[in-house]
């Protein structure tokens, strides 16, 4: 549905987006991650046709955004960053206005507005003006606006920004549900959100894609992925870690805690050895009669991957 090829945007001498290419199909939810100023919003603004790219092609549902902007915009719903809205309009008036510009009239419009109101839980504030709304309601009003014509493509710039945890949960579920038959792109800073909602993740740093894959694939890139967490008692931490380091497939051992003879260690996996570390550790424990309280395999952590990928080179070198 969305196809972006070699997209580049320069503001003066500064390259905000540098040779970006990706595509999103129907049924996919693509998460856009990246530090502030990485070019996420700029990319979304170009895809939605708000700002023209310096070079590159964007097509949405077969419509070229530059050649046929109206055709492309018809297919898209867009929630801009900070969820803008006309301060002096009521929620209902605002949604009616957007529906009208989306070409809906009469009963069709009424139904569409009611449906969007229902999806975004706006019943209580329908006749309030937008400047009197709390941040969460304001955000959901703008989200409702983007859904009103049941678009095939949704571009959401930080859709859960400023929502409370319950609302965040609702919006995530909504995105996930809609993702089944739409192509959705959304940006966020919240990594757990990516895991909960996205079928694919793109990490952008300084205008370029630095990682592209499913959340599971990205997590596997973490140093933590495949590590074995062990809790035991009855032996000194140093001895345990020494023995564990000799288990086949172990890269190194980190002592996490040693309180009153209760030892907690983490064994990092040697990535080239395959996913058998947990079994090897368990076998070693059985063989040598260690008194284990707990043993489990750790999944990678997205925030760790994110940090290693997007840290500036200078900090990476120092670390």
């Amino acid at each position: 549905m969305i196809k972006v090829e070699n997209l580049t945007k320069a503001f003066g001498a500064k390259l905000a987006v540098n040779d970006l290419s990706f595509s999103v199909e129907r049924g996919e939810v693509l998460g856009f991650l990246g530090p502030n100023g990485a070019g996420k919003s700029t990319t979304m603004r170009m895809v939605t046709g708000f700002i023209p790219p310096t070079s590159g092609n964007i097509s949405v549902g077969g419509h070229d955004v530059l050649e046929d902007p109206i055709g492309a915009k018809r297919l898209m719903g867009y929630l801009p960053e900070n969820a803008p809205g006309y301060a002096d309009m009521t929620v209902r008036g605002f949604l009616n206005f957007v529906a009208e510009l989306r070409g809906m009239r009469g009963d069709e419009r009424k139904r569409a507005v009611n449906h969007a109101v229902e999806l975004c839980f706006l019943e209580n504030v329908l006749y309030q003006t937008i400047d009197t709304l709390s941040k969460g309601y304001k955000h959901r009003t703008c989200l409702a606006q983007s859904l009103i014509h049941d678009p095939a493509v949704l571009i959401l710039d930080e859709p859960t920004d400023g929502l409370d945890p319950n609302q965040k949960h609702e919006v995530r579920n909504l995105i996930k549900r809609m993702g089944e038959n739409k192509a959705i792109v959304f940006s966020t800073h919240i990594l757990e959100e990516v895991e909960a909602v996205c079928s694919r993740v793109i990490i952008i740093d300084r205008g370029s894609i630095v990682a592209n894959g499913t959340p599971a694939e990205l997590k596997a890139r973490s140093e933590l992925a495949g590590a074995v967490h062990v809790r035991a008692h009855g032996m000194p931490a140093a001895t345990l870690s020494e023995r564990l380091a000799q288990v086949p497939g172990a890269a190194r051992v980190e002592i996490l805690g040693d309180v009153d003879g209760r030892v907690e260690v983490r064994v990092y996996a040697d990535k080239s050895a395959g996913a058998t570390l947990t079994r090897s550790v368990a076998e070693a424990a059985a063989r040598e009669g260690w008194q284990l309280d707990e043993i489990h395999t750790e999944e990678g952590r997205l925030d760790e991957v994110f940090r290693t990928i997007t840290l500036p080179d200078t900090i990476k070198a120092a670390a």
């Binding site: 708000f50 915009k73 898209m76 801009p80 803008p84 070409g103 703008c142």
Partner: peptide, 14 residues
């Protein structure tokens, strides 16, 4: 100022 320009110009109008 309100940022609604972005909203208005990404609707299917010229």
């Amino acid at each position: 100022r309100l940022g609604t320009l972005e909203l208005l110009l990404t609707l299917p109008i010229t």
